[in-house]
């Protein structure tokens, strides 16, 4: 956002420069053209400021992208770390799978849509935008064709729910994983 703004401002500055320091004959832009360009740049700036203003709330909720996310599943049989292909993770979180490939019931836990870690999880792990995930869940829930994931409020609740529910899958930040949880490695 800032870099866009900077580029636009320098473009405006350049236009001013052209206006002041060159004669109309030698200028690549006629005054009429440069005026309309300036007007266009001004309009762009207004739109940018407006959208920045509107986005201000959103920005403050965005997470620091460097917090690592750990994918976890319930593990009371102590099988240890699991390897799951990305397409299967996507299938699980799109709620198209009712069971694990080995037949155990699958229960999906997620954080709220606007939670920074959920947004990071959607973008980085699933390669999907949070609103798309919500829409595809809604289509399944309201047509009866799928189940909704279970929403937990925060990380502590996520960890507690996944370790308490057989067949559960979820994600947490950091790597403080105890015995009841298995770390999932995404292939």
């Amino acid at each position: 956002m800032i870099s866009h703004l900077y580029r636009l401002m320098s473009a405006v500055r350049q236009l001013n420069h052209i206006d002041k320091n060159t004669t109309p004959q030698s200028s690549p832009l006629t005054p009429v053209k440069s005026r309309s360009l300036r007007l266009a740049a001004f309009c762009c700036l207004i739109v940018l400021f407006a959208s920045m203003h509107l986005k201000a709330n959103e920005q403050s909720h965005l997470a620091d992208e460097t917090v690592p996310i750990t994918h976890i599943s319930h593990d009371d049989s102590h099988n240890g770390p699991m390897n799951i292909p990305r397409r299967t993770i996507r299938a699980i979180y799109s709620m198209r799978m009712l069971t694990w490939p080995d037949g155990r019931p699958l229960t999906v836990f997620v954080l709220p849509d606007d939670h920074p870690e959920h947004q990071q999880f959607c973008r980085n792990t699933l390669g999907i935008l949070p609103f798309q995930l919500r829409r595809s869940w809604d289509r399944l829930i309201f047509s009866g064709k799928g189940r909704a994931p279970i929403e937990v409020r925060n990380m502590a609740e996520m960890k507690k729910s996944v370790s308490a529910t057989p067949g559960a899958i979820g994600y947490i930040t950091g790597v403080q994983v105890d015995e009841s949880l298995a770390i999932i490695k995404i292939l």
Binding site: I84, P85, T99, P101, G103, R135, D138, R139, F142, G144
Partner: peptide, 30 residues
């Protein structure tokens, strides 16, 4: 169901799978 493919069956009254919106047309949020 396996990790690449699954198959299922619905019995009863189901929503007609037509287009993008037909199945959820009465739900404002969709």
């Amino acid at each position: 169901s396996n990790e690449h493919f699954n198959l299922g069956i619905n019995l009863g009254r189901f929503k007609n799978p037509i287009g993008h919106y037909n199945e959820t047309r009465d739900i404002a949020f969709t």
